[in-house]
């Protein structure tokens, strides 16, 4: 099955001004293509959370959204610093975000759990000093 659309976004560390642009644009494209609204909602949530994780926690990275006829694959990959304990990071309410980030309403420890909940398939691989890759598949 051929690939229909591929969207690629570079996400910079601490760039709160543009944070949300990748997910907003992804949503607009999905809407234009005519993807069902419940899938759009889930795709918007996983892309947003992935984007915010890159902004808040990473040293920068990228988000790739591949839209196939039967599924959407969202991949978030960063250049570090890597997650020391992935199991802990997956727990609701666990966050390493500093206070100044929490005061903005981020760092609730809900990002990765939300991403997993809204995906049909979810995988995360992380290596300290190298980076983290999260791959999420949503079936249409």
């Amino acid at each position: 099955m051929g690939e229909m659309v591929k969207l690629e976004y570079r996400v910079s560390s601490e760039d709160f001004e543009r944070a949300g642009d990748a997910s907003s644009n992804t949503k607009k494209v999905l809407k234009k293509i005519g993807i069902p609204s419940d899938v759009i909602r889930r795709a918007a949530i996983v892309t947003y959370e992935a984007e915010m994780n890159l902004v808040i926690h990473s040293m920068g990275g990228e988000i790739v959204v591949e839209i196939f006829p039967d599924r959407i694959i969202v991949t978030a990959k960063d250049f570090g610093p890597g997650i020391p304990d992935v199991d802990k990071a997956m727990q609701e309410g666990y966050s390493t975000a500093p206070d100044r980030i929490r005061e903005m309403g981020f760092g609730a420890g809900m990002g990765l759990p939300n991403m997993k909940k809204c995906s049909d398939d979810f995988s995360i691989e992380s290596e300290v000093g190298v980076g983290t890759e999260v791959v999420m598949t949503l079936y249409i």
Partner: peptide
């Protein structure tokens, strides 16, 4: 969807959240 969101957050990212949902 369609909710009125009541908050004290006022930075630019709230617009992305509201639009995405």
């Amino acid at each position: 969807k369609g909710s009125a969101w009541v908050t004290i957050q006022a930075h630019v990212n709230i617009v992305a959240v509201a639009c995405l949902l």
